[in-house]
Design a protein around this nucleic acid. Structure first.
Lengths: 234, 234
DNA sequence: CGGCTGATTGAATCGCCTCAAAGAGCGTGG
DNA sequence: CCACGCTCTTTGAGGCGATTCAATCAGCCG
């Protein structure tokens, strides 16, 4: 009994954290673990009923496309995040893996049924959905009003902040090095820019001594305060 | 008993529609009707605990500001919509009235308590929040990837569609005239453009014979299909 | 009638995109 | 081991679209 989901790395932080061991059985019966390769898609826009899932490891993107095929990433998902749109008949967004990822997948209908039974989980999902809405609204402001420099500086600043939480080798305010889980092109798709503009802005931040780029994926923040200032975060 | 909220014009469509008459008493005890003047603010960004409300009539905007004071409208609210962010400690957005409006206001804490008791209402709110998230994500795509012409054409198209629902004098596909509840400047704030650009695009659509602008607030859609085409909606 | 707010139109600038070429990193296969 | 092809990145040159700045115009109210 207590073995159920015992090996789950995000049990505490995920939605399931609201369930006790007996309740967890319900969920466990419905869920299936699944590994996603880098680039693999979990859910296509336009699909009849999308899946619901908890992200165990890796990073996912939620994206939409214009009629002429350009992409916009409208959300990123990190471990313990909930993924999917319950109650939405045909999903408008595509969910795919930016890195290799592991998810715990539930059929949408069954998951909805579970929500009705487990009030605490529904409550937690409601809170998270409001948080996601707030986050997306904030991103709306950034995308429409910020310059390319502000967007890139803000993005790196956020990613550094997130990396500090995950990775404890960088403590306090000292220079922190971390690997971006996104390519330049994917960063461009998040920020509503082009690859070239992202690259140019990173080069500028490096030239200003604010960043170092030791590898193609690695970033070192040498001056977090200056970075935040360039992001217009003050 | 059955008199409670009997005069509410949006009783059916709003969140309260999920409650029966006895349950409604709980809500009714907590709620207060309030009239908002055009331009008046219901809730400031940064406020300790924001209010929750149902919109009875009029149009509200949800907006954010950059550090240097430029505004971005991140959402619009129409009658029967729910307004506010339960579970969010300090609200990040300002809610104000674009037109004269009437709202049914609840203290945040009390409203949260009510959600816990009335599961159907919580469920309905969850569904609406997911819908709002989807909508906001869609807007993210538009703001970051569409041209000024696509944005303006799409906006007018959407507003015309909404007006057709409210106002039945325009039937079928014939030319439909309606009043915009927003000034040019407010449209610019929704679309992430400037007043001048919005004005120029409207002039272009008028010159192309797609729109007529009989008054400063009034719009007539002469060719809905062409409008949709310019919005990149095909 | 002036004073106000909001809308329109024009001219010039600037930021980002587009197009293009070259360089870096990396796995594969000879 | 090196050559090759592939993807991703960097850098440059030029163009276009939206902004900025500025002036005029329309509607409304005191």
């Amino acid at each position: 009994m207590t073995q159920v989901c015992a090996d789950c790395t995000v049990r505490r932080e995920a939605l399931c954290g609201s369930l006790d061991d007996t309740e967890l059985l319900d969920l466990h019966r419905l869920g299936r673990r699944r590994i996603l390769e880098r680039g693999e898609t979990l859910n296509w826009a336009g699909d009849g009923d999308g899946v619901c899932a908890n992200l165990l490891s890796g990073v996912l993107k939620v994206s939409a496309c214009t009629a002429d095929g350009r992409e916009q990433i409208v959300g990123l998902c990190y471990p313990a995040d909930f993924v999917g749109s319950p109650f939405v008949d045909t999903s408008h967004f595509t969910v795919s893996a930016l890195t290799e990822a592991e998810v715990c997948v539930f059929p949408r209908g069954a998951f909805e049924g579970l929500l009705a039974v487990h009030g605490r989980m529904e409550r937690l999902l409601l809170q998270r959905t409001f948080a996601a809405l707030d986050d997306t609204r904030g991103r709306l402001l950034v995308l429409s009003r910020n310059t390319a420099e502000q967007k890139v500086a803000g993005f790196i600043s956020n990613m550094a902040e997130r990396a500090r939480g995950t990775d404890c080798r960088a403590r306090a305010d000292g220079p922190a090095t971390f690997d971006l889980p996104l390519t330049r092109g994917q960063i461009a798709d998040v920020l509503g820019l082009t690859i070239e503009t992202v690259s140019r802005q990173l080069t500028r931040l490096k030239a200003a001594g604010i960043l170092a780029l030791p590898g193609v994926r690695a970033v070192t923040v040498r001056d977090a305060a200056a970075l935040r200032a360039r992001a217009g975060m003050d």
